[in-house]
Design a binder for these strands. Sequence first.
DNA 1: CGTGATCTACGAACGCCGTTCGTCAACGAA
DNA 2: TTCGTTGACGAACGGCGTTCGTAGATCACG
Lengths: 255, 255
Amino acid sequence: MRSANSDDDLPEVPLPPWRKARKPSQPRPQLSRDLIVETGLRVLDAEGLDALSMRRVAQELGTGPASLYAHVSAKEELLELIYDRVLGEVRLPEYDPSRWQTLLRQCALELHRVIVGHADVARAALASIPTGPNAIRLSEFMFGLLIDAGMPPRDASLAFDRIVLYVCADAFEGSLHYPRMKALGHTKLTEYFHMYVAQIEEYFTSLPPDRFPHLSANARALVADGGEARFRYGLDLLFDGLVARMPAGGDKPGA
Amino acid sequence: MRSANSDDDLPEVPLPPWRKARKPSQPRPQLSRDLIVETGLRVLDAEGLDALSMRRVAQELGTGPASLYAHVSAKEELLELIYDRVLGEVRLPEYDPSRWQTLLRQCALELHRVIVGHADVARAALASIPTGPNAIRLSEFMFGLLIDAGMPPRDASLAFDRIVLYVCADAFEGSLHYPRMKALGHTKLTEYFHMYVAQIEEYFTSLPPDRFPHLSANARALVADGGEARFRYGLDLLFDGLVARMPAGGDKPGA
DNA sequence: CGTGATCTACGAACGCCGTTCGTCAACGAA
DNA sequence: TTCGTTGACGAACGGCGTTCGTAGATCACG
């Protein structure tokens, strides 16, 4: 409680003449919106969304929480900015409406990959109504594919919206395990999942077969497929419906 | 701020000999799990999930927050209990696997209706991995329909899971407007939505047409359909895919 | 009829949180 | 040089989930 950085106050010592009035090179820490967003994302990646507080970000920047509010109106805005920053990592394929199905699918998978790659950012994704530049860029691409493939605008709007919702929802559901894992002290992901799956299966097995015949008899099948398979299955369902609704059908005769 | 129930404390008055030592009839407020859940749900319905704190529930029960922890291990458990309590309102139709499509659809719509009917309980729905009795009851019904209609267990497991996820996700997305509306001081739902839609449409319209041709040109279509239509559209997509995967096809030749 | 164990209620406190206010230093324009 | 503006930030406010210690009621058992 004594040593470091106690050169403030204490005016009784004459203050040696070299060492010009505190912090000669960088009097301002050059705080900025981008720096705050980047720092927030770093905290989120490293410790999860629960650890992402204004205070935590400020601390990481070596300042107090009040300093952030000059650049960000509220925590909600910071979360939206972080989410849009994450969306910036989505790589779009080359635009080609004749291959709309392939490309749209690719977009969905890529979006899912990026979101899942950033801890539980999915919670922020689902909670915010994204209007940032990267969100718009992605929307224009996906929505445009459907329009240029011949879908009526209202249908394209609905379809696009449902796909994004599904992708985010699945990522969100998966991200729920993230804080749970931390809470249980597990550090190995596979180990945690093994335990979790075994637990659920045992629960289903233990159900009274007379009242829950299907659940108890199929406990194994109920936990058989993990996150990625579940995600793809639902995406396939959606795309099946989509192709059926598209005037010209889907692409992908062979690949 | 004076009259009722101020007979505690104040020991300077000798305490008349009738009126035996404070609270003769109900010395215990009969706090219980169910009462806490019911109270929590009441707070949630009336003021939203953000207002649902341990302190708020305790206050509603005329006690302190510590008292709740004898019946509920944490806030998360309380939320799960409340969610399962809400699931208890889901009314299941008569079981008939030959009409699986109709009944499963009916289940999804009913589940959606019930969740949407309880403010933003959807947030708790999506965040919890439901294992309560009412969740199991609903799962057995929906999963059983798919099994008895001839679906392989693993597919049935995935399909059931995806449907529930979609229903909850849509309800959740819709519930995001709930706190926003409150924050903006709106009390009329239609009025708020009118404003919101107009705002979004204007935003899309204002986008530079050279960089976002599809979004800016179709602003009207992008906001044309409200929550219920969006929900049904996505559900239709899912069921189309489901029917295509079902060995015997779907029911509903006419109705 | 004790009497100790067990359980419920709960006041107080801890350590977080998001946000606001007032102050103060630095800076750009006049 | 002066002054208004702006960013940084210490301090504080009110609220949160949760824990601890205590006190009283309840009950099984001697």
